[in-house]
Every structure is written in structure tokens, then in C-alpha cells.
Design a protein around this nucleic acid. Structure first.
Lengths: 367, 367
DNA sequence: GCTTTATTGGAAATCGTTCTCAGATTCACT
DNA sequence: AGTGAATCTGAGAACGATTTCCAATAAAGC
């Protein structure tokens, strides 16, 4: 097998044309419009290209001229590499990739590292549009994306950005259903473990003001849904302990659960606003000798495979479909002017991690 | 929050320069060489840019001029979307993404769908180099990549391509160790379930000729390692049934296992050349009422998290490191001329799915 | 006050295509 | 042979920036 041989001065369309004694147009047509020139001539051109090692029209020059890059950019939360560890993000990516491959469009992952905020990467990306996956409202990279004169689709957050499409789920309805489920089971003394509410690291209790002022609308909505469910059951939401964790990992979930249980040993149910956190909560509960769900009910959000395998009660959301839909919005937009908003449904999955509260004296408040 | 406003005729560097009454060079310098012009002038330029909605230098035009795209292309096996379902591929992607984000380089996923072989996508990609992940030797997309006058790094396969870098693992040594492990446990009557050996669909037995003629060097090597291990134990490799499956999924693994056990009920050990297949094998064995490892030993290859959780005996390979290394080879290559080959080590993980063969009469051949 | 030396901004060439439009050639048909 | 239609081909202008000189101005040295 012979390797690639690259002449030090690579051939261009012009040099090939000169070599053949034809015009550049002809060579260009040989590649892009086979019907615009005779078959033998076309073959002659392609043969010469092969001989001179001409790899076909330069993609960058072509993009400049045609004003089409043939790729969409993807801006992700956190570090780029993190996306491949998060099951929700990979599901989304799979759907988006599916839409892209169907359209023959490339998918450019924009390098974003949490440390140096090199917004440059966004300005450097040669793309026809952007998909933004779940970033903070004040994310500088997102700001940069909005500057670029290309269509943009946001998934999940930020919500309510004028002029851009959005696809998401009804987070509030999801946690509302989940909260009501727990209420029905008799739970009144609950604790909540949520994901980061701001861009700056904060690990600890989050009061109502912080909850409502969060720059992450998804968390805001999920907490609001829970608040509504418990408020309508007569619980004073301000008394419900909400613990926030900056990192999104099972370890953080376990750690947050420990803090929560230390401070509020009396809770009978723990709601985590993501499955990853809930998996950590399950671990921590077991490590403490608490039986789930006998001693403590635990619920999550997202419906990632690992959580469903563990029998977690959760709210399932269609990650893959979100990716597909985001791709569709971006790639199949004609020249519409109005922005579209798509909200996909969620589904309450009742697993074996929640159950009817034991009717033990004072805490029972059913019937 | 106000949305992005895009003037219908977007400003260019030239129009901005005209507006300000300065030259294009000055505007360009304001962005790229702040030290080349006075601070007040620079501020005046940036202010005007803000006012006119100029989003900064066009990335495509800049790429054309500077001959740098600021991105590397990634060519994957199969469909692009498949990569996000395969745990090995996601591990690799995570490592590669890590290397990219460190270098501030974008990662362009080249759209490849198994149906229409639109090699165009490869020629369309504006990138400074390619990473190719585990494709067939005769893959047309790969051929196209070799045509492009940019550096290329291959991960896993194809091996032995002149002029391109490669990173992989010693597959043969891995299965050699695995095979010897089984031999030590007393197994002589074994069956093998392997991944696709050719680009065209084929599901069924693969004789030695087909094994050695495979266009997938990874499978070739893994089978060769097994052959070596069992040959040195006195087993005639040609008698060892090897079943091939085109799809790479647990379902295919279960299905292949069923075929293998139907045709060769006497085997005491089953080696799968990937963990995904092995997970399906475990399921099928259980469905048949076979106890693993008491009635049948099962082993895999790759060391994906799910398999290790299941206690599978396997050969672990460092996916993430492969990605990191591939990125390093591509991004940190100075202007070296010789191609580099990196081989990372594997590790035999002995789980609970293999055990000493029961000393039952005629089949026992230990001591 | 005159020359030397930094500093700063500008003119023009270039990167490799595609596109428009007009001119040239071929071909069939009367 | 003449005509009109059909088919190809070619010259030049974009596309939007960067880069290499060069000229002009300002600061400094004697």
C-alpha cells in the first residue's frame, strides 16, 4: 500500500488549467457541474488532476466564494471533553449528529475550556450556523455566538433569547408531576439537591432568592415546579432545604446528600434535579445505612440509562430527539424570519426508589 | 434581553475601514495585532465595529489567507451518530476533545453515512489535519482523506499506511494474554465471536482464510493472538469455530452466541473480540440457562465501563489516552517528516466470567 | 535646528475558488 | 451553404481577509 505523496508546491485549480491549456472555469466545472462540459474533456481534466496530485477544489476558498461552510458549530456547556462523559449530552449529540449526517453537514465542536475564556474560538469557526447546548445566560461564548451573523438554535438554555430558535422540554411540568407524586406518597419533609445556579462556584444552601435569580433557566424551572407541587400541598417552600452543587457528578451528588442529611436528618424524600446527582445520592444513602426507599425516597431527573437501570424514580426527557430537532431547526430552516420554539414532552418514570411514606406517628399527614 | 440584530448587508473589514477613513490594514491590526496601532485608534475601530455590527474578521476569509483553518477533522467508522453510542468511541472522543480544547483547535466531525458514499464531505472539510478512527483499509472516505494535502493520524486501523502517523494498542499481545489465561484454566474447546471482517455484510462462520484476509487489521490481530495462544497449547486453530457478526451491538452478540452454541454445544469457553459482543453473549448464555462461569467461561475485549461492572474478564485498552495521543501527534507535530507510530499497552482484567474448567472426565486435559 | 530613529498608517498583491456574461464553436436541418 | 439552436469555453470580477513593503509623521539626539 502506498502512502500519500504531497508535492511541496500543491497544485491549484489555476495551475491545473494552465497545464491543460483550458480555463479555470472548465476545471471548476469538471468538479462541480459535470453536465457543463463534454465527458472526454472532463475525464482529461480529472486524469491530469490525478497525475499532478491536485486534491480537488480547496474547501476554504470554495467556502469563501460560495458563502457556505457546510458545517454547523456546536457550543457546549463547560469543557468540550466533558460532553462525552455526560450521558445526557451524548444523547443529544447522537441526535444532532444524525440530523447532520442526513444533511451531509459537518459538525464543528467549538473548543471551550473553562479556564482561559478564549472567545476567539467562536469567531474562528467557519460555520453556517450554531447550536448552543445548555449554557448560562451570561456565558461569554454564547454572547460571541450571538454576534455572528448566522442562525442559531439554543437547546434548553438560555430561554427567551429574542431572534433565536429554541428546543427544550417543559422542565417545570416535569418536576411538578414528580413533586405531586411524592406528595401523593405522603412526603412533606423533603430536601432538594440541585445543579449549579450561577457561573461562579458555589456549594451550599440556596435560598429562594438565589433559586429564582439563577442564570440557568433549566434549574430555575425545575425548582419552580417542585415549589409549586409542594406549595399546593401546604408546604412552605422557603422551609425546604435546597442544596446546590457546582460540579455535576455522582461524587458531587453524594457529597451534597451528605451535607443535606447532616443538616436535615428528618427528611423523608430527596429530590435531585439530575440523575447523575441522584446516583450519587443513592450511594451516599446506602453508605449511611439508609434503605432506599424504606427510609428515604430518592428521585432524579433526566432518565439516563444508568439511572433507569438502577430503578430510580425520575423524569425522562428525550435527549436524542432534542438533538434531532435542533438539527432540523437549523438545517431545514428555509428563509423564515420568525424564530421557532419547540418544547418536547417529558415522562414521569416511577421506579423503586420512591414509596409511600411509612405511617409513623407525628410525621404522617395523609388522609 | 435583546436578540442579535443582523443588518441585511453585513459589514466587512473594508466597509468599516471606509467608514472610518482608515485603511483595511489598520482595522485588521486592531483585531490581530493590538500592539501595531495606538490604543485610542484601536478603541475607535472597535467602537465603530460595535456600532455597525461588524462581527470581526470573517473566519473563512481569514483561513484562506492564513492557510490555517483552526480545526481538525475526524473521520469515524460507520455513521457519525453511531460514535456516540459506542463506549469505546466516546472514550476516544473525550481524549481527542481534551487535546483539542487544550490547543484551542476545533474538532470537525465529518458526516459519513453508510448509505450514500458521499466522499464529498471529506473534500469539503476545511481542516488543518485529519484523525481517522478505526476504519476499513478499503474505506473510500479514508482514501479521500489521504488525497488531502494535510497531515493525518490513524487510530487503530488501517495499520501500516505509509506516511501517516498511527496510534493503537497491541491487540495481538492482548488476546495472546487472554488466550493463555483460558488455556491455563484448562479450556481447550473454545469458540470465538468476532466483529466484522469485511466491508460487506457477512454474518456467519469465518474460516482461517477469511480471518487472515480481513480488511480490518484490529480484528485480524486479535484473532491472530488467540490463534497463537491456543496453537501453542496444542489446539488446532482451524478447528476452532469463529463466528462473525456485521453489526456491533449486544443484540448481535447474543445472536452470534446462539448460533455458535447451537452448532458447537461442547465449547467450554467463548471469547468475544469486543465487550459489547460479550455483553450480548452473557445475556444469551443466561437466557439458555447456562451459568457463567460454571458452565461456560466468557471473555471480551476493550474494558468498557459497563463490561467491567458486569465482572467480565476482558482486555482493557486505554481509549481516552488513544484520543489524547492522536491529538498530540496531530497538533504538536512540528514540521517533522517521518511518521510516528505509538502503541499503548493493554491490561488483562480477570473478572468473574471465566474460571477453571471443571475436571469432568474426557475433556479435562490439565496437569 | 538638523539629522537619525521609532512609530504608525496605507497601497497593492495574494490566497484559490466560483460566477456572470459574453463570445466561440459545433451541429442539425432546410 | 446558410441559419438558428445548442453546447462549450474564457476573461475578469468578486469573496473578505492578511501581509509585505513603504511613506509619513513624531520623537529623540547632537
Amino acid at each position: 500500500m502506498t502512502g500519500p505523496q504531497h508535492p511541496r508546491r500543491p497544485a491549484t485549480l489555476a495551475s491545473l488549467a494552465a497545464e491543460l491549456g483550458v480555463s479555470r472555469t472548465t476545471v471548476s466545472n469538471a468538479y462541480n457541474r459535470p453536465d457543463q462540459l463534454s465527458a472526454p474533456l472532463r475525464e482529461r481534466v480529472l486524469e491530469a488532476a490525478r497525475r499532478l496530485g491536485y486534491p480537488g477544489p480547496d474547501p476554504v476558498a470554495r467556502s469563501l466564494r460560495t458563502r457556505r461552510a457546510g458545517a454547523v458549530g456546536l457550543l457546549l456547556t463547560e469543557a468540550l471533553s466533558y460532553a462525552f462523559r455526560d450521558p445526557g449530552a451524548t444523547g443529544f449529540l447522537e441526535g444532532l449528529a444524525l440530523a447532520c449526517e442526513k444533511a451531509g453537514t459537518g459538525l464543528l465542536l467549538v473548543p471551550v475550556s473553562p479556564e482561559h475564556s478564549d472567545v476567539d474560538a467562536v469567531y474562528q469557526a467557519g460555520v453556517d450556523g450554531f447550536v448552543v447546548y445548555s449554557v448560562s445566560e451570561d456565558d461569554p461564548h454564547f454572547r460571541a455566538v450571538l454576534q455572528r451573523p448566522v442562525p442559531t438554535v439554543v437547546c434548553d438554555q438560555p430561554a427567551d433569547i429574542g431572534g433565536v430558535d429554541r428546543v427544550g422540554v417543559d422542565d417545570r411540568a416535569g418536576t411538578l408531576a414528580l413533586g405531586r407524586h411524592l406528595v401523593e406518597l405522603g412526603h412533606r419533609r423533603v430536601g432538594v439537591l440541585c445543579m449549579r445556579l450561577g457561573s461562579r462556584r458555589h456549594d451550599g444552601p440556596a435560598d429562594v432568592a438565589r433559586q429564582q435569580g439563577s442564570s440557568y433557566s433549566v434549574q430555575r424551572e425545575r425548582l419552580a415546579g417542585l415549589a409549586a407541587a409542594f406549595t399546593e400541598a401546604g408546604v412552605n417552600w422557603a422551609d425546604v432545604p435546597v442544596i446546590e452543587r457546582f460540579e455535576h457528578s455522582a461524587d458531587a451528588g453524594a457529597d451534597g446528600t451528605a451535607a443535606l442529611l447532616d443538616a436535615h436528618p428528618g427528611i423523608t424524600a430527596l429530590v435531585c434535579t439530575s440523575d447523575i446527582l441522584a446516583l450519587g445520592a443513592l450511594r451516599e444513602a446506602r453508605d449511611r445505612g439508609l434503605r432506599v426507599p424504606e427510609d428515604l425516597s430518592i428521585a432524579g431527573f433526566d432518565g439516563v440509562p444508568e439511572a433507569e437501570r438502577a430503578g430510580l424514580t425520575t423524569v425522562r426527557q428525550p435527549f436524542r430527539e432534542k438533538g434531532l430537532e435542533a438539527g432540523r431547526l437549523l438545517l431545514e430552516r428555509g428563509d423564515r424570519n420568525v424564530s421557532e420554539h419547540v418544547t418536547l414532552p417529558t415522562e414521569l418514570i416511577i421506579g423503586s426508589s420512591t414509596r409511600q411514606l411509612r405511617q409513623s406517628g407525628e410525621f404522617f399527614s395523609g388522609w
